[in-house]
Structures are given as structure tokens and as C-alpha cells.
Design a binder for these strands. Structure first.
Lengths: 140, 140
DNA sequence: CACATACTTTAGAATAATTATAAAGTAGTT
DNA sequence: AACTACTTTATAATTATTCTAAAGTATGTG
């Protein structure tokens, strides 16, 4: 029980720091997103389907979108795009890179890629982060 | 006039190599995309608006989408995504990188970034290309 | 160089992802 | 406990894109 309370507190903190009140729906979404050992990637539609499948009382689409969006704006989720028109989210917010393999995404730890040369930021700007996408193809 | 003919031939070649017949609409789209000194970025919607503004007889949305898609599949355009749900296209197909500055995209020449360390491709796969996105923020 | 045929264009309908709306419900303050 | 501002929800609206089917056009063949 101690652990449970502690975890919920973490989720509530994430919500509060995203400017959101910790409602039941939101806490459950956080539990689903952050209450596991491994980070993962998802679309809002996938998240909605996974969570609502097991629930008698469904959480509405708008709540999923609102919550994910706020978590992302606060930096608790990272957004990325493939070549299609759907937003993907990543619960791994540590700076890292990706392999893209025909729609499948694989994380690359930050320290697996280092640079020999990087350009200067334009005047008045600075670099916020650097992300590398390595596109893969079959080894024919 | 010579130059004009030569250019049109280039456009027609691009279309043919994309599996498309060189119709008037398509040649005009190619002219707009490839008949200039500098490469540029665009969305299909932007392309449509820019081109149709000056035309008495408008080219239909579907034709813009079809043509851009075929040119992209043939490698005459590169597609990329920002954090939203719109596809962007780049007439610069040379391998290169990007600064993203609040929705604005700036090209970075390929030789401005070099790597010290890159990960191996997973078994049975090989690297198709490597693309770097450098996100910028204001120098507060 | 006319003709047949397969490919194109087009307007409009359809779809998919996302955002907006506004009425009913709930958290947090007093 | 009561009030008020924030939430949830179902549904409508919007945006980007794809599909459809009828009318038009490029191109090889004779």
C-alpha cells in the first residue's frame, strides 16, 4: 500500500506541474503511462483503445487529448512524428534518438551517438536539443 | 526560348520517372517546384494556394496531392514532419539536416554535421539515411 | 493523324486525427 | 456544506488527406 500511495503521489505531481487537477481519469492515464518499468511509444488513439478496453466506464477522447497535450507541454512526454499525419508520444523524455524502420520506432540511447561537428545556432538563438533519426531498410 | 524548352524537358523527365504522364497541370506544378534557383519547403495546402492564386483555371486539390505524392515516392521531393499533423515537403533532396525554430525550418548543409559515433543497424537491417533536427529556442 | 484506351482531372463525398462546444459533474476553497 | 472554477463528456466542427466516379486528355497503333 505504501508503494501505491507513493506512486499516485508521483502521478499527481506530474499532473499538478502540468497545470491539471488530479481527477480520477487523469490519474489513471498517468498510471497507465508512467506506472511501468519500461518507457514506450503511443498514439492518442492507441492509448484510448488500450485503456478503455478494460474499463466499464470509458474515458472520453477529449480527456485523452487534453491530458496528453498538457503532459507533453510540461515536458512529461515527448512528441514526435513519422512520415504520416499522426502524432506519436514517448514516455521516455530523456534526450535520445530513434531508428525508424518502416513505421516501427526503436529508441537509441543518447550516448550511442556523438558528434564531431555541429553548426552554430543562428544569432539570438540557442540550441534546445539535437535529435537524430536513423532510417533503416532491409539488408536486401 | 531554348532554356524554356530545356527546363520543361527536365520537368517532364521528373514526371516520367515518377510514373506520371506530363499533363499541363503536372508540368506547371513541377515548374513551380523545381524552376527556381533556391530550394524551399512547403505543405500541399501552401502549394495549392500559391499556385491557384495566380490562375484563372484552378488546379484541383487531388491533383496537387497526387503529383506531390508521386514526386516524393520517386525521390524528387523529401517529406518531413514537424510536431503537428501536416506533411511538409522539401525540394532539396540532397541529404541534409534542419534547424526547427518554432515552426520555421532552416536547412543545414550535410557537411556541417559529422559524427564521432553512430550505432550499428539491427540485424538484417542497414542504414538508409541519418537525419538530424536541431531544435532552437530564443537566447532569452 | 484519327482512334481507341488507359491514364487524368475534377468536384465533391468520405475518412482520420484532432479541436471546439456547451451542458452536467467534480475538485478545492471558504 | 456551499460556491466557484475547472473537468468530463458526447457531439459537432475542423483540418488534412484520400476516395469516387464522371468527364477530359495523352499516347501508341494503324
Amino acid at each position: 500500500m505504501h508503494k501505491m500511495i507513493k506512486k499516485n503521489k508521483t502521478f499527481i505531481d506530474k499532473l499538478r506541474s502540468s497545470g491539471l487537477r488530479p481527477t480520477n481519469q487523469r490519474v489513471e492515464i498517468c498510471k497507465f503511462l508512467f506506472g511501468r518499468k519500461k518507457t514506450f511509444h503511443f498514439t492518442v488513439e492507441e492509448l484510448k483503445n488500450s485503456m478503455n478496453l478494460k474499463r466499464l466506464k470509458k474515458i472520453s477522447t477529449a480527456t485523452f487529448y487534453n491530458t496528453v497535450h498538457a503532459l507533453k507541454s510540461a515536458g512529461h512526454l515527448k512528441e514526435f512524428s513519422l512520415d504520416n499525419n499522426t502524432s506519436y508520444y514517448d514516455t521516455n523524455i530523456a534526450s535520445h534518438h530513434h531508428f525508424f524502420d518502416n513505421g516501427k520506432v526503436i529508441d537509441i540511447k543518447s550516448d550511442k551517438i556523438t558528434f564531431q561537428k555541429l553548426p552554430e545556432a543562428p544569432k539570438g538563438k540557442k540550441i534546445k536539443n539535437v535529435e537524430v533519426v536513423i532510417r533503416l531498410e532491409n539488408n536486401n
